[in-house]
């Protein structure tokens, strides 16, 4: 399970970073989304990986830590998902505004090539 999870984080993060460094805004935003997936899974994995363990304290108040899934990272990840979703949506709006105002989807708001040249 560890291998699969770390491979998933690695692939998400790697492709996210590559896309983040691309010149088109759409690529940047997809890169940011992929990166945030990687980060979310990473936060989740910091609560240690367990299968079939409850995250809720049994009645009586005492828990065996080995038989128990840490609920805190799950709560953190939920917050992180909501926040990154909202900020990504906001970025999307700015991206569309930029396309409308500058007429290009380049991150610098202008094309690096002159009109006569081939891309």
């Amino acid at each position: 399970m560890e291998i699969v999870l770390s491979a998933a984080i690695g692939v998400f993060a790697g492709s996210g970073i590559w896309l983040l460094l691309r010149p088109r805004t759409f690529q940047v935003i997809v890169g940011l989304i992929l990166l945030s997936y990687a980060v979310n899974i990473f936060i989740f994995s910091m609560g240690r990986l367990t299968i079939g363990k409850p995250a809720i304290m049994p009645k009586g108040g005492w828990v065996n830590a080995a038989e128990y899934a840490d609920p805190l990272p799950q709560a953190l990840v939920l917050t992180a998902i909501v926040i990154s979703f909202a900020t990504t949506a906001l970025f999307l709006v700015v991206m569309i505004a930029s396309k409308g105002l500058t007429g290009t989807d380049h991150v610098d708001g202008r094309e690096p090539y002159r009109s006569g040249e081939t891309k």
């Binding site: 983040l20 805004t25 940047v28 940011l32 990166l35 945030s36 980060v39 990473f42 936060i43 910091m46 805190l72 990272p73 953190l76 992180a80 926040i83 990154s84 900020t87 990504t88 906001l90 970025f91 700015v94 991206m95 505004a97 930029s98 105002l101 500058t102 991150v107 610098d108 708001g109």
Partner: peptide, 26 residues
Amino acid sequence: VRAGIHYIAMNLAGSLFFLIGVALIY
């Protein structure tokens, strides 16, 4: 808007760094 795109992208990436750091510390 042009400055905003850079600023927002920079800070979104920064926030992800923040989360990775927090998760590691936790």
